[in-house]
């Protein structure tokens, strides 16, 4: 007991009492003026931060979904475009071959027509030429005949000419 009366281990009831009073008063003052608003503010902020994080997470998921949708849409559009291009190419190809065929046919027709025309013209010209030759030959023959024809010869020539003409025709 003597140790706590004096020296380093002294326990002074007065100091004990003052400590209690100081501490209790400090607790009451700070409770009202500092800790209550401080803890409330911190809790409020923690709540707010939690909400913000939740909202951000939600937004992120939504954005990801939208992104996926857009990706799918883009893919669709790409496929559609490719299909359109392929269709266009096929159409063009068909059109081109059709046109070519038609043109060939046309050309064939024109050629044939021309050939026929040429043949007709040639035949016509040959006929005319024959007539002309016959006419000229008769004229020449008549001139020669008139000059030095004896009556017996005349008869023979006419005979011969007649047979010749007959063979030509």
């Amino acid at each position: 007991m003597d140790a706590i009366r004096e020296g380093l281990l002294k326990v002074d009831p007065g100091l004990y009492l003052w400590t209690l009073v100081t501490f209790i008063v400090l607790v009451l003052i700070l409770w009202k003026a500092a800790w209550k608003p401080l803890v409330e503010a911190l809790d409020l902020r923690a709540e707010k931060v939690r909400n913000d994080i939740e909202t951000a997470e939600k937004n992120r998921i939504e954005a990801e979904k939208i992104f996926e949708d857009h990706k799918a849409m883009m893919n669709n559009a790409k496929n559609e475009a490719a299909k359109l291009i392929a269709d266009g190419k096929a159409d063009a190809e068909r059109l081109r071959s059709g046109l070519l065929e038609k043109a060939n046919e046309e050309a064939q027709k024109i050629m044939e027509h021309a050939k026929r025309e040429i043949t007709l013209s040639k035949d016509k010209a040959l006929g005319e030429l024959k007539n002309e030759i016959a006419l000229l030959s008769t004229e020449i023959a008549s001139k020669i005949i008139v000059k030095n024809l004896k009556p017996e010869d005349q008869k023979a020539i006419v005979e011969e000419a007649l047979t010749k003409i007959r063979t030509v025709q």
């Binding site: 700070l30 500092a34 800790w35 608003p37 401080l38 503010a41």
Partner: peptide, 18 residues
Amino acid sequence: CIIIFIPVARKIKNAKYG
């Protein structure tokens, strides 16, 4: 304690984002 924490509490309460 009093002169530190009473103003600090007020400032924390007023600052919404810290």
